[in-house]
Design a protein around this nucleic acid. Structure first.
Lengths: 187, 187
DNA sequence: TGACGAGTAGAACAACCGGTCGATATAAAT
DNA sequence: ATTTATATCGACCGGTTGTTCTACTCGTCA
């Protein structure tokens, strides 16, 4: 008979950090994280080497999930590249309009961590590059005349939606962005 | 003979805070601010009531300056509302491409200060509203069919440029944004 | 002269920062 | 049965957080 173990300290720590760093920013104290996760201080340093390592690992996980979210959204939109790209902005409208939305985690992390050598920056940079590639691939399939430039513009709109969604609650920037996205796709 | 006084503690403190909160974020310590400004601890609390008051006052000042910058940029672009609005994006290209650019101060402050009651939020909210109105007035003068909606879209582009400029250095998002802005104006 | 206001220097505060470490408990592997 | 790995508690480190307070030095004006 196997004992009912449940998620270990490592998982609990990641989950707590995912939650608290989003609510309070990456400036949350280690004590608060340990308290929330109900995990001994030492476990943090054994598993992640320190607070920075934990933060970077949390971002690594959420970027993977968010990338999956993009992929699923696009897959659900069918085969047409145009419809697939526009679906991204419909999905953004849901996210930004959702009750728990508090801004883009990656943007907040990049702005909060002044040290350019912090491991979190590498994670967010890779993520943005992957999303850009995702857009570019669709634009190529669409037969767009300059897929690279258009991908940059779409990424700009995504950044704008996430920024405006956080700083001007109430407005729904994703709707505005979708219109502009249509123009990009038709150019 | 008048003694050479120079800027008082209040001014020195504001200047130091303007600089340090931009370089290191609003999380800078009070000690660092006092050291940089060469000001006694007590003066901070007499003049601003505390760190939060100082931060809010710094933002109040920079928003006024930045609004002036918008106004001067537009005035220099002549009378045509279309040219005036597009000039904003040329100016953004300069700012984002400049050597000292480290992201948008207001966006960083909003994302870093989790407490919605922090006085800084009111300052940034007012600033965004003033900029939005600036855009809307020009759009009305331009005879745009839906100035409110278009102003929101321009603001979205500005947010996007400032966000992307910070998170994806090297790319020049203002150029991408200018193209989209043209489309908004011609709609 | 004396009072007042503004400034400085710096001690003290309680709370918290990220990080290290010894002691111990548990359970699987040998 | 013994070893090994993992996980836990919790004390402890030096340093810093934002804030309050006392004591002192100026210059100004009455």
């Amino acid at each position: 008979m196997t004992t009912r173990t449940g998620p270990g300290p490592r998982e609990r720590l990641l989950e707590a950090a995912r939650e608290l760093t989003y609510r309070h920013g990456v400036g949350v104290g280690v004590d608060a994280l340990l308290r929330e996760a109900n995990v001994a201080r030492r476990s943090l340093y054994e598993h992640f080497g320190g607070k920075d390592g934990l933060i970077a690992e949390v971002l690594r996980r959420t970027t993977a999930e968010d990338e999956d979210d993009y992929l699923r959204t696009m897959r659900a939109a069918g085969e047409d590249p145009r419809a697939r790209l526009l679906a991204v902005f419909d999905r953004l409208a849901e996210i930004v309009g959702g009750p728990g939305f508090r801004g883009c985690r990656y943007l907040a992390a990049d702005l909060a961590l002044a040290d350019p050598g912090h491991p979190a920056h590498a994670v967010t940079r890779d993520y943005r590059e992957r999303v850009r590639r995702l857009f570019e691939d669709e634009l190529v399939r669409l037969g767009h005349r300059s897929p690279g430039r258009a991908a940059d513009q779409l990424l700009l709109l995504v950044d704008g939606v996430l920024a405006a969604g956080a700083t001007r609650p109430g407005t729904n920037p994703a709707i505005s962005a979708r219109e502009l996205a249509e123009h990009i796709l038709d150019a």
